[in-house]
């Protein structure tokens, strides 16, 4: 019963948008290049799937995200763990990290293009930069908040530093880490689209910018919808996978 109510409530606003869109096209006399009809968007979606362009664009963007995200996850988890366990490392790095984090990822793009060009590397570097900080900060937080009592148990049983990390710090930080990894993936996906919009010759962001210059609003909307849906799918997927790693977390909430 509750879930039905939830689904109905979630659908009301999208339905309203569709109705408004329909009415705007029918009675608003907007030019096709600015606001195309739903039918036209659907047709654009079909042709772009059929000729393989859309799939290709998505794959190019996704492969960039995977590369950058992988590097960012490793760097973020290692750096976050070190800073979380060592007070010295924290005092050394955290202030500067906090400052750098405030710079929006878009603001990095000009400098990255100057340094790495507009090829593959610059996209990957931008994704690494974007995903690194949420992963680092959340990992650090999870490691640092490990209760002193649990560490005392580790000392009682004379666990060496590495085992203490594996058996106490890491499992305690895991849920926090997963939050960071989830946020990082979302940010990475946004960053790749943004960087492709600004300077690229392939990828879904490039397709949008290309379609805009040709006044093809239908293709722009198709790309936007695809970006949104892929983002949601990735987020749900990663949530399910991570849930399997932390079975004890579910019990806590119950």
């Amino acid at each position: 019963m509750k879930s039905i109510k939830k689904t109905v409530l979630a659908l009301i606003v999208p339905f309203g948008i569709i109705v408004a869109w329909y009415l705007a096209v029918k009675y608003g006399h907007t030019p096709e290049g600015i606001l195309p009809s739903m039918e036209k968007v659907w047709k654009a979606f079909k042709t772009n799937i059929e000729n393989g362009q859309l799939t290709n664009d998505v794959l190019v963007s996704l492969s960039r995200v995977v590369k950058g995200y992988f590097v960012a996850a490793i760097l973020g988890i290692v750096a976050g763990s070190v800073i979380g366990m060592s007070k010295t490392a924290k005092d050394l790095f955290l202030p500067i990290i906090t400052v750098i984090r405030q710079i929006p990822i878009i603001a990095w793009i000009p400098l990255i293009i100057l340094w790495c060009g507009i090829g593959e590397e610059s996209k990957v570097v931008i994704i690494v930069l974007a995903a690194f900080f949420p992963i680092l900060v959340n990992t650090e937080n999870g490691i640092e908040k490990t209760p002193e009592g649990m560490l005392e148990v580790a000392r009682l049983y004379k666990l060496n530093p590495w085992k203490t990390f594996i058996k106490v710090y890491l499992p305690h930080a895991l849920p926090h880490m997963l939050v960071g990894l989830r946020l990082g993936l979302g940010v990475a996906w946004m960053a790749v689209v943004a960087s492709e919009l600004i300077a690229a010759s392939s990828g879904i962001g490039y397709r949008m910018s290309d379609a805009r210059s040709l006044m093809m609003a239908d293709v722009v909307i198709v790309c936007m919808l695809v970006v949104g849906i892929i983002g949601v799918v990735m987020d749900k997927l990663i949530g399910v996978i991570f849930g399997m790693f932390t079975p004890w977390e579910k019990l806590k909430k119950a």
């Binding site: 009592g149 000392r155 049983y157 004379k158 058996k167 106490v168 499992p171 305690h172 932390t246 004890w248």
Partner: peptide, 20 residues
């Protein structure tokens, strides 16, 4: 000089590790 295996300890809060 430090904890040893022949000396166990039980704390007020059970201090079981929730992930094990």
């Amino acid at each position: 000089v430090g904890p040893g295996p022949k000396c166990g300890m039980v704390f007020q809060d059970h201090r079981l590790l929730p992930w094990l």
